[in-house]
Design a binder for these strands. Structure first.
Length: 292
DNA sequence: CAGTGGCCCTGTCTGC
DNA sequence: TGCAGACAGGGCCACT
């Protein structure tokens, strides 16, 4: 499940392996993989063929590559969804079972493959912000900056979080408030902050909001340092290698295992059609006071 | 308008 | 052995 650290690992791989290369040929093997392209797969292919790829960029879980040459003013945008992979493969490697899109390059070297089992991810060629050297696609203007972005505004985030009339985990997963946080790192940040996932955001103090942000930033930085979190073969870097952070998780996926702080078994709760892992002792739901 | 909940998708695992 | 159902869950969009 690629979240910010995993997507950043992939971004670095793209920056290393495809920047400066010219696209010779594009194959779309599953139409759903380019469903963000309004005019369809043929348009996607036409807009990409012959362009030169720039340096990959990222905001939250979105990746994009600015295009130069015939593609100037546009970017190739990608989202990995739950199971998407961008692999830089030797052309002799047999096609992956869930290969959706292939880019061949004019230099005849390793090709770029988008592989996606569950097809929640996808690629598209989109118009970029006018004059933006990073080529930020217009379609992600609503996505907030992420906590590893030097331009992320900590004070504004804390204020916006506390102004919300929702619960804290919902807010962490709201990509218009803070991007890059998914189910895994939300649970980890909440565990580190001793906050229950259903805690109303309006009851957080300013220091609690600041600590939650610091913990989200810290856990994602630590995960990035070891290549991200891989539970299975669904998340790998561009060379097909797994990350090692899963062994360092404190809450996510640890149902019945002892809390590393207090020893109480970690509990899993159904939440929003997914799961929340938390320590029932360290992370208590604040009791609603009557009368106010 | 802000907040909420349903849906998309496929492979793996569990229980009957 | 086979089949149904649960589960993994990010983002979009209709609805309140």
């Amino acid at each position: 499940m690629p979240e910010l650290p995993e997507v950043e690992v992939v971004r670095r791989g793209l920056a290393n392996w495809v920047a400066g290369r010219t696209v010779a040929d594009v194959q779309v093997l599953h139409p759903r993989a380019v469903r963000r392209q309004p005019a369809g797969a043929a348009d996607f292919t036409a807009r990409l063929t012959g362009t030169t790829l720039g340096t990959a960029q990222r905001r939250g879980k979105y990746l994009w590559v600015p295009l130069a040459g015939s593609g100037a003013g546009f970017s190739l945008i990608g989202h990995l969804g739950m199971s998407g992979q961008l692999l830089v493969q030797d052309p002799s490697v047999p096609d992956e079972t869930h290969l959706r899109v292939r880019l061949r390059f004019a230099d005849g070297g390793r090709e770029l493959r988008f592989v996606d089992q569950r097809t929640f991810g996808g690629l598209a060629v989109e118009e970029a912000e006018d004059g933006d050297p990073e080529g930020t696609p217009l379609s992600i203007a609503h996505i907030a900056r992420d906590p590893l972005d030097p331009r992320f505004d900590d004070v504004a985030f804390a204020a916006a979080l506390r102004a919300k009339r929702t619960t804290v985990k919902r807010a962490l997963l709201d990509q218009t408030l803070i991007s890059g946080v998914g189910n895994i790192y939300a649970d980890e940040a909440l565990w580190r902050s001793r906050l229950h996932y259903d805690r109303p955001t309006a009851t957080l103090t300013r220091p609690q909001a600041a600590e939650l942000l610091a913990n989200a930033r810290e856990v994602m930085t630590a995960a990035l340092a070891v290549g991200g979190t891989s539970f299975d073969s669904l998340y790998v870097n561009v060379n097909g290698e797994s990350g090692y952070f899963s062994r360092d998780l404190d809450a996510y996926g640890r149902e019945h295992e002892p809390c590393r702080r207090c020893g109480t078994p970690i509990r899993r709760a159904a939440w929003m059609n997914r799961s929340s892992y938390f320590c029932p002792r360290c992370q208590r739901v604040p009791r609603v006071r009557s009368g106010g």
